[in-house]
């Protein structure tokens, strides 16, 4: 029984029995791993603040044959959300990143691109500016999971949407032109499509220092959330909470 070691992000914890915690980790080496942290609720000596959601840790765990749950042996904190102020806004944004990763990633399947994306986004979720990192995260997450349709052409007639208006619908798999849009479709502005193109070409650091009100890219985020929620076939709790936040 070898001890596994990996950089990991703590996604969620659930109370288990009297004093244990069931921990969902997104590890760099093995993807999403669920494990039991014994006595983590009762004694903080062993894990300290390392099991707080969205903490980046170096995790040591062992996996037994025919046992779905790993045994979490120790966690060293590499970066903690508690190292800077946790506003309500930031707490919702962090929880959203955790929930999306937890819901979308399959168990025990490494995905280095998603791991690097998550690290980069967590690094930018520090102050009160949440809308840029959240937009970047949702956009890249949709693309990396293979759910993002071509944003440059109509899925019905194949016509190029560049320079024209584009629409999306909760039940459609991509964008539609003005002639093919369905009833109750919403418009995706050309500014938001441009933003998406820029985000695919540049790292997240490029977008820091720019003021991002909630309205900026709101239609793009709505489209991305619709796509993600359609694929996981459930509503994300944190998506509704983000929606309720005032600009």
């Amino acid at each position: 029984m070898a001890l596994h070691e990996s950089e990991a992000i703590v996604l969620r914890t659930y109370p288990l029995r009297e004093a244990d915690l069931l921990v969902t980790l997104f590890t760099r080496v093995e993807g999403k791993v669920r494990g039991v942290a014994r006595s983590a609720k009762k004694s903080k000596k062993r894990f300290g603040g390392a099991l707080e959601p969205l903490t980046v840790v170096r995790a040591f765990y062992d996996v037994r044959e025919r046992n779905e749950l790993a045994r979490l042996d120790a966690c060293e904190v590499l970066d903690s959300p508690l190292s800077s102020e946790v506003s309500y806004l930031r707490a919702v944004a962090l929880a959203h990143v955790g929930e999306v990763l937890d819901e979308l990633l399959p168990d025990r399947e490494a995905n280095d691109a998603v791991f690097r994306l998550a690290l980069a986004v967590l690094g930018h979720l520090r102050g009160r500016e949440i809308w840029m990192p959240i937009t970047y995260f949702q956009l890249w997450m949709t693309r990396l999971m293979g759910y993002l349709p071509d944003l440059s052409e109509c899925i019905v007639c194949g016509r190029s949407l560049n320079g024209g208006r584009a629409f999306y619908h909760v039940l459609a798999d991509g964008l539609m032109c003005v002639d093919d849009k369905r009833l109750a479709s919403s418009e995706l502005s050309s500014d938001s499509r441009m933003l998406a193109t820029q985000m695919f070409r540049a790292p997240i650091d490029t977008f820091t220092g720019v003021t991002w009100p909630k309205e900026l890219g709101a239609d793009l985020r709505k489209l991305l959330m619709q796509i993600l929620q359609r694929h996981i076939e459930k509503k994300l709790t944190t998506a509704a909470m983000l929606e309720k936040i005032d600009g």
Partner: peptide, 11 residues
């Protein structure tokens, strides 16, 4: 002193 407790205190 958790993420949730800190968010509540800040709010």
């Amino acid at each position: 002193p958790t993420v949730e407790g800190e968010a509540t205190a800040t709010y």
